[in-house]
């Protein structure tokens, strides 16, 4: 069982590693596309990375509706805590 805070930390670390964004600027409300300048190709890479880190399969469709950090955390938490 992972808490939302732990998942948030993990995703923020990934974002920093993949896209060199400033981790301290990320909050639950941060919009990936607008605030962090992530595009659809980046998102695909992020999904691939999340798969390796969590060991869970993420449906691309599930990630399509994702906009904010909170959305990501919810998707990941739904998977790892199933």
């Amino acid at each position: 069982m992972q808490t939302k805070e732990e998942i948030f930390e993990m995703v923020a670390d990934l974002l920093e590693e993949l896209f060199e964004v400033d981790k301290s600027s990320i909050t639950m409300e941060t919009n990936l596309y607008e605030d962090l300048d992530i595009d659809s190709i980046d998102a695909v890479d992020l999904v691939v990375k999340l798969k390796t880190v969590t060991g869970k399969k993420i449906q691309p469709d599930e990630f399509k509706t994702v906009r904010t950090m909170e959305n990501v955390v919810d998707v990941v938490s739904g998977l790892v805590n199933k």
Binding site: L18, F19, E20, I41, D42, D45
Partner: peptide, 8 residues
Amino acid sequence: KNANIAAR
């Protein structure tokens, strides 16, 4: 090495 950074 990081393709995303290179693209940026």
